[in-house]
Amino acid sequence: MTNPNSDVLTHVDEHGQANMVDVSDKTISKRLAVAQGRINMSKTAFEMVVNNQHAKGDVLSVARIAGIQAAKKCGDLIPLCHPLMLTKIQVDFYPEANENSIRVEALCKLAGKTGVEMEALTAVSVATLTLFDMCKAVDPLMTISDIQVLEKQGGKSGDWTR
Rank of each mutant, 00 (worst) to 15 (best):
T130F: 03
H11R: 01
R38F: 09
V12S: 15
K72G: 03
A71V: 05
N5Y: 12
I65N: 00
A106E: 03
V8R: 12
G57Q: 14
V49I: 11
G37Q: 00
N52R: 12
V12I: 15
T130Q: 10
T143M: 00
S145I: 11
V23A: 10
V49F: 08
I78H: 05
D146A: 06
T143V: 12
R38H: 10
H11S: 02
R31S: 08
K113A: 11
E47K: 12
V138S: 04
D133A: 07
L80A: 03
D139L: 00
L129V: 09
T27K: 15
L77G: 09
C135T: 15
G154S: 14
M48Q: 11
V34F: 01
V104N: 01
A63K: 06
F132G: 05
T87C: 02
E119C: 12
P95M: 10
G155V: 08
A120P: 00
V138C: 02
A123P: 07
V62K: 12
D7C: 09
L141G: 13
M134E: 03
S125W: 09
T44V: 11
H15W: 14
M118D: 14
F93C: 10
P140M: 10
H54G: 06
N19A: 02
E96W: 04
L121M: 15
A33I: 07
N52C: 03
G155W: 06
H15L: 14
R31K: 12
Q69L: 01
A120H: 02
A71D: 01
P83D: 01
A106I: 03
L32R: 11
T161W: 03
T10I: 15
V59N: 07
E119M: 14
A97P: 15
I89M: 00
M134I: 08
P79K: 07
A63R: 01
D58N: 13
P83R: 02
T122N: 08
G154Q: 13
D92Y: 04
A63M: 07
G155C: 07
I78A: 00
R31W: 08
K136Q: 07
D146S: 06
C135Y: 13
I39T: 02
F46Y: 11
Q17P: 09
L110S: 06
L110K: 01
G37M: 02
K56C: 03
V62H: 13
S145N: 14
A18S: 14
G112H: 08
T143W: 00
V104I: 07
Y94R: 08
V116Y: 01
T128S: 05
A66C: 01
S61H: 11
V104F: 00
W160P: 06
K88I: 09
L110C: 02
F46Q: 06
E47W: 12
K109G: 02
E47P: 13
N5I: 05
N51L: 10
E117H: 10
K152G: 00
T2E: 09
M134R: 05
F93Y: 08
H11T: 07
